[in-house]
Amino acid sequence: MSAIYILLTISVVVAVLFFTVFIIAVKKGQYDDSYTPSVRMLFEDELVKDQTKLTVKPKKTN
């Protein structure tokens, strides 16, 4: 009978938890710039590719 109380408490706590996380994310400015991160995400690879290119080059001449 009291199961519903436990379930309700859990559901509300979980909901409030996610909501707080969202608010904190907004507050920290994570949604302020919605474009640059999408480009930046691809860059990590570019830098690696650049380094491998340099290490690959001497092998080619061999």
Partner: peptide, 16 residues
């Protein structure tokens, strides 16, 4: 930071 080691970080906001 690659051009000047004293620069710790730089972050672009493209929109602005």
């Amino acid at each position: 930071s690659k051009l000047n080691p004293n620069i710790n970080a730089s972050q672009v906001n493209f929109g602005k």
